[in-house]
Simulated assay, not measured.
Amino acid sequence: MVMLKGLSASMNARLIGAGDEVVVLAHGYGGDQSLWDKVVLCLAQDYQVLVFDWTFSGAAKNTQTWFDPIKYGSLEAFADDLVGLLEEMGIKSCVFVGHSMSGMIGCFASIKRPRLFKKLIVVGASPRYLNSEDYEGGFEMSEIEQLLSAMGTNFEQWASAFAPLAVGGKDQNAMEKFERSLTRMKPEVALAMAKLIFLGDYRHVLELVATPCTLICTTNDIVVPPSVPFYMQKKMIKIKSRVEIIDVDGHFPHLTAVNQFLEVLARVLDS
């Protein structure tokens, strides 16, 4: 049994299941490890599965103590936490599955410690959300400013409106599950993280990734345009990456299309 200490304790780390291979499931903005519940149930039959809560999550312990907006001024700081967590848990090698912002965190971490990561699976990830002349990120600056303003004015009201749009489709349980985890975030932390994500530009990281990568997207995601995973694939010049498209609306295929999501994971894990 692994004794939790430091990062693993504050991030509520749990290693579940059995098997020789470790699969790490990392949630995205507004989430916590509970968003992986259905995926964990299946994977834990054949793999050791590591789930945890990022320090910005409403489920993390002592967020006020652990979350320093100056320290976490870049996604790279979360990659340091990820590497530290894996080392603390005694994990020598893993398949990393990162949703949304965690996809780019996994890219950073794989560059720092390539031997720790056998494969990357990024879900609804994006290196940049802001449009420019040569890149479609999905948002104009005016839209991002409006989003940040709405969050700062009334975070709970913004969250209740954003959650169903982000989840997409008609799965009420999935929408409520995400809204619960989103509204558990401390408003000041949520706003700081939103600025970090929506105003960041991590495109330069892609060409440094040398770990085999699968990019999972959905057919209709209001957060990430369909061109983004193909852009990422093109920029990952050191490796052969592939794009997998799940035919469902929304940013959370692991909530709204669990069976299809698990089918993709199985193909990648078995390859």
Rank of each mutant, 00 (worst) to 15 (best):
L208A: 05
H251E: 04
I245Q: 14
T211R: 00
I246C: 06
V224R: 04
P253N: 12
E244W: 03
F261S: 02
I245N: 05
H254R: 00
T219M: 09
A257K: 04
Q260A: 15
T256G: 10
V243T: 13
I245K: 14
L196W: 14
K238T: 03
R242T: 09
A257N: 08
L262N: 02
S241N: 09
Y231R: 11
V248E: 07
I222Y: 09
L255A: 10
P225Y: 12
V223K: 05
D247S: 13
V205G: 00
M236L: 05
T214M: 01
I237W: 04
Y202F: 06
T256R: 11
V248Q: 06
K238E: 12
N220C: 11
H204I: 03
V248N: 08
V223F: 05
V209K: 01
C217Q: 14
D249T: 13
K240I: 12
A210Y: 00
H204Y: 07
P212W: 06
I197R: 04
L199Q: 13
I197Q: 03
P226A: 10
G250S: 05
I222V: 15
K240D: 15
A210S: 12
I197E: 03
Y231N: 07
P229H: 12
L215M: 11
S241G: 13
V209Q: 02
H254C: 07
P229G: 10
R203C: 07
K234H: 09
T256A: 12
P253K: 11
K240W: 05
L206R: 03
G200A: 15
V243G: 07
K235F: 01
P253Y: 13
C213T: 13
A257T: 07
Q260F: 10
D221Y: 14
K235A: 09
V258D: 12
P229A: 11
F261R: 01
H254Y: 15
G200M: 06
L208H: 03
L199A: 09
L199R: 14
P225D: 09
K240M: 10
Y202V: 04
M236E: 04
S227L: 12
R203S: 07
T256I: 12
Y231C: 07
I237Q: 11
I237Y: 02
I245F: 08
I245L: 13
V224M: 06
S241F: 04
K234P: 01
G250I: 02
D221C: 11
D201G: 06
D247F: 09
T218E: 05
V248I: 13
A210I: 00
G250N: 03
S227R: 11
Y202C: 05
I216V: 09
V205I: 15
F252T: 14
A210E: 13
I245G: 06
